[in-house]
Amino acid sequence: MKIIVCIKQVPDTTEVKINPETGTLIRTGVPSILNPYDHFALESALNLKKKHPGFTVDVISMGPPQAKAVVQFALALGADEGILLSDAAFAGSDTWATSYALSMAIKKIGKADMIFCGMQAIDGDTAQVGPGIAQQLGLPQVTFCEHIEVEGKTIIAERHIDGGSETVELRAPALFTMIMPKDHPYAYPSFTQIYSASKKKFSIWNAQDIGAESHYLGLKGSPTQVSKIYPPKKETETQFFNVSAAEAAEKIVEIMKKEGFIK
């Protein structure tokens, strides 16, 4: 089977800082990482490749030229071929326009049996691009997946639902979005793997390469618009205590009594 994994480079949101005076993001020095959900999607695909000789795994990402880093990371972990969609025409794309561009690229690659995406990206948390691609390609989708097994053309997937889980069955081709399992020891490539990744096949495609119609791309092609960005507003008056641990513990008990949580 031919698997395509869609990955995204994101700022490490746990490292993003806020300027307390202006309430704006401080981006300097914040590292860019592979979206952790995509990291798991990639590992899931590579595990299938290990298990089933003959499977191939290609990765595709959309972003500025520096997003090549995550593609190369994926190649180092074991992906066969990497593609980066990079073009000023993509700038400002919302989830709709992003899904469109990615689905056009996937069509161009052709003959994909399985498409893996992270459930969502940690910088946007929308979880829309995976289903968007599935719709554009007319494929069935299984979202919030934890585990995938393949037998011939039949795929059995374990997925998360609210308050439980489901086992589902379907046939390729199909699209899957992967959740991030807790306590998962993410794989990192060795120096040799990283070195050989820089020699693997990597291409950069622009809007023309994927045959995209420009009015569906970028800001023009995006139905949603950001009208305002602002710091989250403060709603409660805060009472501060800077006391010893023992005093703090007593004070908390006092508050709980006052508010009626304990007698």
Partner: peptide, 23 residues
Amino acid sequence: ATVKGRDLAPRIASALYVGLTAD
């Protein structure tokens, strides 16, 4: 913005080419 809602809404938005804001 449940599992079902987040599975379904983007699919419809994509089909109809309309804007969808998550969460």
